[in-house]
């Protein structure tokens, strides 16, 4: 490897920049987008109240 060979140096830098690890995409929220806001899949009204 010759010091100061412009091209190789440049390729090194390109590869360094362009091959940075890229995380897998963030998945959507479990509840899909564009659902009706009023509907909720879980019963939220009366949850069992445990005697504490």
């Amino acid at each position: 490897p010759v010091e100061g060979s412009g091209d190789a140096n440049c390729v090194d830098e390109i590869l360094k920049e362009m091959t940075q690890s890229w995380p897998p995409p963030l998945t959507a929220i479990h509840t899909p987008c564009k659902t009706e806001p009023s509907k909720f899949p879980f019963p939220t009204k009366e949850s069992h109240s445990f005697p504490s």
């Binding site: 390109i14 590869l15 362009m18 091959t19 940075q20 890229w22 995409p25």
Partner: peptide
């Protein structure tokens, strides 16, 4: 991701 993948392969 597509671009990164391509350069990883070239690399």
């Amino acid at each position: 991701a597509t671009i990164t993948h391509m350069f990883v392969q070239l690399g």
